[in-house]
Simulated scan of single mutants.
Amino acid sequence: MYEPIRAKSVHSTVDGPNPDFPHRSREEELDIQLAGHLAALLAVTDELRAAAPSADLDVAAERLAEQVARLRDGRAPARLPGARREGGAAALHRRAHALAGRALVVAASRADTAAAILAAERMDAHAAALEARELASH
């Protein structure tokens, strides 16, 4: 029915954890997750900036880039200025709002106040942009 496991686990041995297998702390894992969410939010922010430049988005992009670099030990995030996907500004604002929410959850779990504040501010900004678009369409 099932083939038996023939190889030893790479995660642990009879003597304990395998020293050749890289292990990260919970905090390191959360840093990686948070940097990823913030980098994705930065990419969407850059897309919004390309579609409709604004000083608020410029400041947000710089703050996001600073936080990503801080979480990645000084390595700046990769950025593609002017890259745009199809879907329109409303879809980008919805995506940015969702990404900021994910970043907020991770930042709160690792007690990163600066990232949590930034994520909450971005959530508010994208929610306001969506609300303004909805009001304008009625």
Results as ranks from 00 to 15, higher is better:
residue 71 L to K: 01
residue 56 D to C: 00
residue 66 E to L: 03
residue 55 A to W: 04
residue 60 A to E: 03
residue 87 G to Q: 08
residue 92 L to I: 08
residue 92 L to N: 13
residue 75 R to K: 13
residue 79 R to V: 13
residue 50 A to K: 10
residue 90 A to S: 08
residue 80 L to C: 10
residue 54 S to M: 04
residue 76 A to Q: 13
residue 80 L to E: 15
residue 85 R to T: 14
residue 82 G to A: 11
residue 71 L to A: 07
residue 60 A to M: 10
residue 71 L to M: 06
residue 84 R to G: 08
residue 82 G to I: 09
residue 60 A to P: 00
residue 69 A to Y: 02
residue 66 E to S: 09
residue 77 P to I: 03
residue 63 R to V: 03
residue 47 E to M: 12
residue 72 R to A: 03
residue 52 A to F: 11
residue 78 A to P: 07
residue 65 A to S: 13
residue 71 L to T: 02
residue 82 G to H: 07
residue 56 D to F: 05
residue 51 A to F: 01
residue 89 A to F: 02
residue 73 D to E: 15
residue 66 E to R: 11
residue 90 A to W: 00
residue 82 G to W: 01
residue 87 G to T: 09
residue 79 R to G: 02
residue 66 E to A: 12
residue 47 E to V: 05
residue 47 E to G: 12
residue 75 R to M: 09
residue 58 D to Y: 01
residue 77 P to K: 03
residue 88 G to V: 08
residue 68 V to T: 01
residue 62 E to D: 13
residue 64 L to H: 07
residue 68 V to Q: 01
residue 69 A to M: 05
residue 74 G to P: 02
residue 51 A to D: 13
residue 68 V to R: 07
residue 54 S to D: 08
residue 58 D to N: 02
residue 70 R to M: 10
residue 46 D to E: 13
residue 58 D to K: 03
residue 68 V to G: 01
residue 53 P to V: 04
residue 61 A to R: 13
residue 52 A to C: 10
residue 79 R to F: 02
residue 57 L to H: 04
residue 62 E to N: 12
residue 73 D to G: 15
residue 62 E to G: 15
residue 66 E to W: 01
residue 88 G to T: 05
residue 65 A to N: 01
residue 88 G to S: 10
residue 84 R to H: 05
residue 61 A to W: 10
residue 92 L to D: 15
residue 92 L to G: 10
residue 56 D to I: 00
residue 89 A to L: 15
residue 58 D to R: 06
residue 78 A to F: 11
residue 77 P to R: 07
residue 72 R to D: 06
residue 61 A to S: 15
residue 90 A to T: 07
residue 92 L to V: 08
residue 89 A to N: 08
residue 64 L to F: 04
residue 81 P to Y: 05
residue 79 R to T: 13
residue 82 G to K: 12
residue 69 A to D: 04
residue 62 E to I: 03
residue 65 A to F: 06
